[in-house]
Design a protein around this nucleic acid. Structure first.
Lengths: 185, 185
DNA sequence: GCTTACCTACCTATCGTCAGGTAGAATTAT
DNA sequence: ATAATTCTACCTGACGATAGGTAGGTAAGC
């Protein structure tokens, strides 16, 4: 097997599980079964669950940031960029009613080891930073940092509510209302 | 002990725990310790965890609805009513960084028994119904149902993000931005 | 020969749940 | 009025399942 392959498989499977069942719902035994190894072997790559959770969130943030930078590089229209941003959360919902890793982990805040909590905060900060950049593409934009934070929170909330209903069209309706109100460009 | 007193104590303690650690974080043994009885005794009042969770969410919805009806009875200004609505979520955060029961349970969607899921949906529906009533106090209000849904989602998201940061002022900043954008009256 | 990448086997802790018991209050029968 | 019965509100003590984690072994590759 290629070097680092198993580690990647573990992270990929773990991410999908956490996005569905949360960090608390992630178990080494089930994860090992998904990957095709034994649970003890996961400890070869991640000494403990907190370490795995932290790595997961860090990677999630990095991957998302990469994608978003690409979006920003390909368009200078805030509305178009933020539409693509919202589409990511929509796609996640469509993927078997999954949630944003940062969102589901935020809800689990009090059950999280410190190293995971820190990464969840960083994920949020990255989102807000990017949204602020996207908003700033329009020269007359004002109150950018607060508005970026609000859009991030609103999108997370839309996903949360839509997930509880098990209905992507609820997400669409909410985001549409955000646009109608002027919150989202 | 007064009849029904223990049952009420169980529900009160369980509600606080779930608002902090989620439905998955609620254990019969810890709950029993909080109440001052043995874990097996909880089954005398609630046959199983799903039943307790359902009862919890139902009560949470009813209590909140009672409060909100009072708000609507005391004012005919949408902005004032919805400010009081948002203040409830703020107070919850101030109560040791707790979350709305409906919000935290929504994140746990895939781990929830059907009877709890149903109550979570009903909680959301009640919120949206009330927000629609509050918005309709202004005669020229339009797109009321969608806007009500959007406000509910946005407030839940604001609470989620603020909780992950452990900072109520983040909630305040987000809600302020909602108002500035026109989403929230 | 040492490292890497696994494995088996086990540990301790905790989970929801249940069978069965008990003291006392309430109800019913005589 | 008293005795018999049943109900309420708990208890003890255990069940099987599952959790994260660890010690130590093995087989392959450099």
């Amino acid at each position: 097997m290629t070097a680092g392959d198993t580690r990647e498989k573990i992270m990929a499977a773990a991410r999908l599980t956490v996005q569905d069942r949360g960090y608390s719902g992630l178990s080494f035994r089930e994860l090992a079964k998904d990957v095709g190894i034994k649970s003890a072997s996961i400890h070869h790559y991640f000494p403990n669950k907190g370490n795995l959770g932290g790595a997961l969130a860090r990677r999630y943030t990095a991957d998302f940031e990469d994608y978003l930078e690409g979006v920003l590089a390909g368009s200078s229209d805030p509305a178009a960029c933020i539409r693509k941003y919202a589409d990511v959360f929509r796609t996640t919902l469509q993927n078997q009613n999954r949630m944003c890793l940062g969102g589901i982990m935020a809800a689990e805040h009090s059950e999280l080891p410190a190293e995971v909590r820190d990464e969840v905060v960083k994920f949020g900060e990255m989102n807000v930073r990017w949204l602020a950049k996207a908003l700033s593409l329009r020269k007359d934009a004002d109150a950018v940092p607060h508005r970026a934070l609000a859009i991030f929170a609103a999108i997370e909330g839309a996903q949360l509510v839509a997930r509880s209903r098990g209905d992507v069209s609820v997400y669409d309706a909410i985001v549409q209302a955000y646009r109608a109100s002027g919150l989202v460009p």
